[in-house]
Write a protein that binds this DNA or RNA. Sequence first.
RNA 1: GGACAGGUGGCCGAGCGGCUAAUGGCAACAGACUGUAAAUCUGUCGCUCUCCGGAGCUACGGAGGUUCGAAUCCUCCCCUGUCCA
Length: 429
Amino acid sequence: MPDQSKSSFLEELRWRGFLEAATSDNLDGFLNVATRTMYVGFDPSADSLHLGSLIPVMALAHAQRHGHRPLVLVGGGTGLIGDPSGKSAERNLLTEDTTKENALAIRRQLSRFFDLASDDRGLMLNNADWLCSLNLLEFLRDIGKHFSVNEMIKRDSVRTRLEERDHGISYTEFSYMLLQAYDFLHLSRHWDCTIQMGGSDQWGNILSGRELIRRIDGKISEGITFPLLTTSTGRKFGKTEEGAVWLDAKRTSPYQMYQYWLQTADADVVRYLKLFTFLGQEAIAELETDVLERPNERKGQKVLAAECTGVVHGKDAVESVEAASRILFGQWDATPSPDVVATLAREVPSSRIPRPELETGVPTIDALVKTGLAESKSAARKLIDAGGVYLNNIRVTADRKTITSADVVWPNAMLLRAGKKNYHLVLVG
RNA sequence: GGACAGGUGGCCGAGCGGCUAAUGGCAACAGACUGUAAAUCUGUCGCUCUCCGGAGCUACGGAGGUUCGAAUCCUCCCCUGUCCA
């Protein structure tokens, strides 16, 4: 990892578009003086991060590259309470054991972005370790005393909840900001953590923590918030129709992740290159020109997809995924080698069908449902009617086609497709 | 605890005894055009079956009831919001 000066960290965040707001105008000076420890909180409700968490992850990675110490705070304690407004029953049932397991999985993923091997390079803590043993009376007396309800209810996040018709706010949720402020205080005391970063919705919480530290310990700490990312079409970044794009290959295959990045809109691609790759300013400027002058080549998207998928899943995975994509979206290969089929089988969603079943014939509709390309039989029927189903790249027409062994044109495999880009490889045998 | 207002399909939001699988908008999906974009146009959008004409089943917070017939009326319950000397 390149060793750059500490002060340029902020500059890097700035040109890459990470900076939404900062608590001080003189953060440069603050960062210049020493190696700073800076933390971001992560939610351990799943055993994997998804692309929505990528901005803070990248920010922490840049921090380490600039000589600072990233601190990952897993919200194991706050996760036990859960967000009362969230309807997800799952979240409230989180046990301490699950959050610990999840934290381990998340740690593995983060290690691909920055070094967590030694405490002085970067570290990961779980707030369950100090929140669970809190004593209510002591907490109210020592911490609660520093919070003015008058100010708390002025918070945007609280006020909208108070004013909105159908959402109230429970006492538990209202107290959440105290806990997060307390986290910051704890980290400041025990790990010399002086900076908290987070999404722009965290601004208020960050300020609370900063204020608490100032009042109780008389120390100065700072905060940085990141912009809320939306796609140019207004959709939430990192989500597809199927849900979040996860970093875990078991949840979202490298192929799917690669495809997600590849489908980035022209209007977003440069912004994403800055935020989600480690490419330098010149390299990105070059790609920007490419996107402007030859948008149809989608070079920016290709680099973005390769870089991002590469960090998470490794270079080999990228090569394999690119090969698969070439076959599916490039020239149709009527007689691929078994190698090519194997590559596809690794990257594209696939399933297996026994040859005897094919001898009797499988209705296309059933195949669509079984492969998950259609949600129900009637959906599959409608899909065929609309002309959106392809077997081995040939449109399946409305007649009731049965798939038989005669359709196995590839070595022990058939390619089923719904729409333009939903492929499913059916392996035979 | 009381008074009032609400709970309709992924979301918003109409309907307020039969013509309602439920207007409209958004989202989503497919097709055309393209660059595996965007915009636009067309179609689809509860489930199952279909000779593609349609047929059956399940749905309007939950459970009962009135009625030939209920998302619509009644009773009880649950949930949400607003207000309360």
